[in-house]
Structure formats: structure tokens, C-alpha cells
């Protein structure tokens, strides 16, 4: 039997009004949590909001999320064949789903 990981993911546009969604994703040893999230977007739900740029190199520092309550980079946290809870960073303003406002204030566009 192929193993799978269960990702319990926080979804929503409003920090006080969200929901938890559960997705089973195929598990292969050595994969990252980001691999699992990208699999969900391509195979289950393209509306899941995540942010990343370098994919695998841990260079862009964009993919920070809370995994079981701890802040991690989704690209270097290992996917595991168990239930893993993913939430947006609790100390940053929520944009959508797992995406928070991580840009420094001097880099944000305002007119």
C-alpha cells in the first residue's frame, strides 16, 4: 500500500473566520511539505493560496508557515506519513490561506 500524508490546512481570507481543510497527499520519502502543498494545487484545489519562489533552495525565504504550531520553511520541512497541521504565521497579517504579509513595510506598494 502506498503511504500518504494527511495535511490539515487552514483556509480563509479573514483570520477570525476560517476553516480547516483536510487533504491526503501521496508520500514519498525525502519530500518537503511544500511538495505536498504544490501537489494539492495541481491535483485537488488550485485555489489554495501558498507563496514561494525558489521552490527548493531555501533562498527566497517566502514559504514560512506554522507546522504543528512551529514556524518552518515549507521547502525544508520534511513531509511525513502522518497528520500535519499547517496554519498561516500567527504574528503576521493574514492575506489568504497560508499566505501572510511578510514583506517589510518599506517594500509594500501603496499609492
Amino acid at each position: 500500500m502506498n503511504e500518504s500524508a494527511t495535511l490539515k490546512i487552514w483556509r480563509g481570507l479573514d483570520a477570525n473566520d476560517g476553516r480547516w481543510e483536510i487533504h491526503e497527499v501521496p508520500f514519498e520519502a525525502g519530500q518537503s511539505v511544500l511538495d505536498g502543498l504544490r501537489w494539492i494545487r495541481a491535483n485537488r484545489d488550485p485555489t489554495l493560496a501558498i507563496r514561494f519562489s525558489c521552490i527548493n533552495a531555501n533562498a527566497c525565504k517566502e514559504c514560512m508557515v506554522e507546522l504543528d504550531g512551529k514556524t518552518v520553511y515549507a521547502c525544508t520541512a520534511r513531509l511525513q506519513p502522518r497528520e500535519m497541521t499547517l496554519a498561516p504565521l500567527s504574528n503576521k497579517k493574514l492575506l489568504r490561506d497560508l499566505v501572510t504579509e511578510i514583506a517589510p513595510p518599506t517594500e509594500r506598494f501603496t499609492d
Partner: peptide, 15 residues
């Protein structure tokens, strides 16, 4: 200076 990601962290240079 506009970028679709964070400033000076995406693209190819950083890689």
C-alpha cells in the same frame, strides 16, 4: 523598483 515577489530575493541571481 517593482517585483512580483520580495525585493531582491526571487529570480535567478539569488540561486
Amino acid at each position: 523598483l517593482a517585483d512580483r515577489s520580495l525585493i531582491g530575493r526571487g529570480g535567478a541571481t539569488v540561486m
